[in-house]
Each structure stands twice: as C-alpha cells, then as structure tokens.
Nucleic acid binder design. Structure first.
Length: 535
DNA sequence: ATAGGGTTAG
C-alpha cells in the first residue's frame, strides 16, 4: 500500500512539475526519468542526456535535478555545470543539486563561488539542503574560518536545528579538531541519528582521543559499519591492533572499508602475515576488493618478500576491476615487485607511467640495488636527473646504499658531493653510514674511520656497525677492537657486535680472545641471536 | 536534492 502511494505521489509530483514548464509530453518525461534511475555509467548518462535534449526535456526541473545528481555520482562536476548553464530558470532544488555535484568533486573556492552565485541568482534563499554540501566541502578542506562564517549564515537563516545541517556542522567542527564546538552542538541536539554519532566518533578519532571516541561508541543507541570502522581505523593507526581486532570480530556486517582498515592496519604496523591472513579471509568470502585493500595487500607482500606471493597478487590485481594506473596502486605494485625480486615486472610498470615521480624512481632503484644491480640503479638515477626531477634526502640514501652494495666507490663519493654541494642537503646519520659502509667495504678503513670521526652529527650504531663489518672483511684487528668497544657502549645488548669482533679474532686464530669475549657476553646475560654464526 | 568511514609510498 505504502509503495503504491509513494509511486503515485512521485508521478503526481512529476506531473505538477511538468505542467509548470509546459512539457511536450509527460509520458516521455516519465520514461526518461526511469531511464536515468537505471543509469550505471558516465557513458550511459551521456546517451540519456542526448535523449533528454532530443525530447525537449532539458528544462524539466525534475529531470535536470536527477541528471545533476548522476553527474555527482560519476564525478563529473564540469558536465553538471555545462548542463546547468543551459537552464533558463533553475529553481532552488536544481541549484542545490549543482552545488552538491561540485561540493564532492571540485575545489572549495569553486564550490564557494557557486554558493555565492546561488544567493544572488536564485529567487529563494538557501535552505536546509544547501548547507550540508557546502559544509562538507569545508570539512574536507579543513577550512575552519570559512566554515565558521557558513555557520553564521546558517544561524541567520534559522536552519541550525535541521538534523542534516546540524550533523554537517558537527562533522565540520570535528574534522577541524574543534571538538568543543562539535560537542556543544551535539549535546543540545534533541534528535540525533547514527550519522550524527559517527561524526562525533570520527572527530575524536581524528584528534587522537580514542578514549572519548570509545565512550561515544559505547553510548550510542545503534551502530553501523561506519561506527566500527572509524574506531577500528583509529586503533590501527595508534598501533593497537588488538583492540582493532576485537571490534572487527564484533562487527556483524563488514564492508570493504572495514576489511581494508584491518589489512592496511596490520601492514603499516609491520605485521604482514596477519594482514595476509585477513585478506585471505576476505578473499574466501568472495568479497570484491578495492584499491585500498590491494595497496595494503601489496605492502604486506613487499615486507614478506616472497616472489611467489607477489606473482599471485600481481595476477589477481590484473584480473580484478582495479585500476592499476592509479598512482598509489602503481607505486605499491612497483615497490612490491622490486622488493620481491620481480624486476622485469617492476621495470615494465615503471615504464608504463606517463609521469614518473621521485618515489617510483626510488622504489625501482632500491629494487636494483637490493638484487645486486647497482649499475642499473645508477643508470636510473642519471635518467632521473636528466628528467629534471629533484632528488631529496631519501633519494640520496637509496643512491648511496646502491653504490655501497655495488662497490661503486667513486660514484658514491660523487653523489655525496652532489648532494651536499649542489642540492644543499645536510647529510643525515644515514647518509654517513652509507658512506662509511662504502669506504669500509672497499678496504679504505682509515678513510672511513676519519669520516665517521669528522661527522658533525652523532653517528648512529648503524655507521659504527658498518665499519666493524668492514674490519671483519679486511681483518683489521686493532681498529675492530676500537670500534667494537664504542659499539658495546652504544648498544650493549646487541649480540651482533660481539659476534663480529669474535669473528675477527677467530680469523686471526686468537682463540683466547674469542673465549674471553664469550665469557664477557655470558656475564652480561647476552645470548647470541639465531642466524649469527660463531666460527 | 542534503550530512558520515579509508593508502604520503622510497
């Protein structure tokens, strides 16, 4: 009965609207309106648009509104504007639909300009449908002062009590970390819905107050997937995967957002195995992944370094409907293939990029470096400079590490000079560690020692460790002892340093020293880490 | 016709 009534009233509303603009035929308007509802892509929207024009229905307010909201759905704000500009007398509803299309997909200034145009051109003042879009645009840009002036306008229009407007305001203040403003608006609200509560949770999560976010979550009368996922995401970002997991297990209906929150949460916290397990659970439930899930999966796979897995993931993504040309998916894929040793694939993905960026260059260079092709890494570095890209501090870390692994002493030195003299980058402890490693491996132990002692910043254990490793390779006992003594001070419990010195003694047949060192270790309660060998 | 959730990578 209610369905019948509703469809009747929709038809009636259409008829009224049609009569106000004198349509050629109300039945064609109805059929086009029905066609619009079933529209599934931008291409089919374009076809329907042609039909709208052909049938003379372009000025029909209901058709125009529906058309504009489909432009919003397919992220086509420019298309919405071009159609809107041909309307002779758009009413407030049509204006609101245009504003919504832009609020979701255009930069804030464009949306604000449109709002000002609406105020000047539309015969009616903005209503409760106007402000939520405008505010959401302010929220996404975290434009506190602009949004506050919108709030003032809302008060002048007497619209602050509207649930949609008020929820949008709460969301806005929450996103701007103005939790006190959000809270006063929230506490004095007579009727809230689940979106209102979720806006508060999101605000507290974003400002890092997980305790209050949890209190809101526990207090709310009904929850949906968004309530859970916001909190899961907050816990995951704070590294509390245990709490995230408990909520995830409690969530009755998981959507792709909740799955990706867990997968990327584990991946980002260095638990690639757990990330993979969650993904497999999702996969076995035949849930379609999206690009966020896939990026998390690839990140986990990079950390595991398994070529077999990387090949499977690659094939899986190729067969899915995920757009591999999207920048972050591509970056994750290049990184995964590089780290897992599929350099051909990494290189071909890299070549497919129209605009190669610093990060993709670095991913590929690191891959070559890791797999013993330092010369290829250096070739890429030269190509990068020729392309006019500006290397940053991390780029040089990758490049210097590549030189060090490949024993390219001269190139490494040149790069260090290039970094400091031309790019004016202050060398970090990491850069020094690379240089010490580079010189040390090449047997220039004295030079390396001089470098480490002349560092203007405090060298970290990695630099000393690299030098101690070099002393072992080149059998320098006296320097080795000096460096080891330094390292025992900096990191007294790292067994690796004791093992290295012990190996130096062993190679020189100084077994008494080996034995003494072992006693020293036992005395300090240090146990050797599996994987290190005593000769 | 309107408000809510997610990867800054090397």
């Amino acid at each position: 009965m209610s369905v019948l009534l509703r469809s009747f009233s929709t038809a009636a509303a259409t008829a009224v609207a049609v009569s106000t603009f004198s349509s050629p035929s109300s039945s064609s308007a109805l059929s086009v309106a029905a066609l619009l509802i079933s529209c599934r892509s931008l291409r089919s929207l374009e076809q329907i648009h042609a039909r709208i024009i052909r049938k003379g229905l372009e000025q029909h307010p209901v058709i125009a509104t529906r058309f504009l909201s489909f432009c919003a759905a397919f992220s086509a704000p420019a298309y919405a504007s071009s159609a809107f500009d041909r309307l002779s007398a758009p009413n407030l509803i049509v204006w609101n639909a245009l504003l919504a299309a832009h609020a979701r997909h255009s930069p804030l200034p464009t949306t604000v300009a449109l709002f000002n145009l609406l105020r000047r051109r539309c015969s009616l003042p903005p209503d409760a449908f106007t402000f939520p879009s405008l505010l959401s645009s302010c929220s996404h840009s975290v434009a506190l002062s602009l949004g506050s002036s919108v709030h003032a306008t809302i008060l002048r229009c007497g619209l602050e009590a509207d649930v949609f407007v008020r929820t949008a305001l709460i969301d806005f203040y929450g996103k701007c970390r103005e939790l006190r403003a959000a809270r006063s608006l929230f506490d004095e609200m007579p009727k809230r819905n689940v979106v209102t509560w979720n806006a508060m949770i999101d605000g507290y999560v974003k400002s890092g107050d997980l305790v209050t976010a949890r209190q809101i979550f526990d207090k709310m009368p009904e929850r949906n997937a968004v309530s859970y996922t916001s909190l899961i995401d907050g816990y995951a970002k704070a590294g509390d995967l245990a709490s995230a997991r408990v909520l995830f297990e409690q969530l009755p209906e998981r959507d792709v957002f909740s799955w990706s929150a867990m997968i990327s949460g584990y991946a980002q916290n260095g638990q690639p195995g757990a990330a993979l397990k969650i993904f497999l659970e999702m996969y076995n439930q035949n849930i379609k992944p999206d690009e966020f899930v896939v990026v998390g999966l690839m990140s986990a796979c990079s950390q595991l370094g398994s070529l077999t897995l990387a090949k499977w993931v690659d094939l899986y993504v190729t067969r899915s409907s995920i757009d591999l040309s999207k920048a972050h998916v591509l970056a994750a894929s290049i990184d995964m293939n590089s780290k897992c040793g599929n350099m051909e694939r990494a290189a071909s993905l890299f070549e497919s990029m129209p605009n190669k960026d610093l990060i993709s260059y670095c991913s590929l260079m690191q891959g070559y470096s890791l797999h013993g092709a330092g010369d290829k890494a250096m070739g890429l570095f030269r190509q990068m400079l020729e392309e006019g890209l500006m290397p940053d501090s991390i780029t040089f870390t990758v490049v210097l590490a590549a030189c060090s692994r490949a024993g390219l002493v001269e190139e490494g030195r040149q790069c260090f000079d290039l970094m400091t003299n031309e790019h004016l980058i202050v060398p970090s402890p990491d850069h020094y560690a690379c240089m010490v490693d580079l010189l040390g491996r090449a047997g220039r132990l004295t030079e390396a020692y001089e470098l480490i002692r002349s560092m203007p910043v405090e060298p970290h254990a990695g630099a000393w460790g690299a030098l101690l490793g070099a002393c072992r390779i080149h059998g320098d006992i006296s320097l080795g002892e000096t460096i080891a003594r330094k390292l025992f001070e900096i990191e007294p419990t790292n067994a690796g340093n004791y093992v290295l010195l012990s190996n130096i003694y062993a190679v020189a047949d100084r077994w008494a020293d080996v034995s003494e060192l072992r006693t020293l270790m036992r005395g300090k309660g240090i146990r050797k880490v599996p994987g290190f060998t005593w000769i």
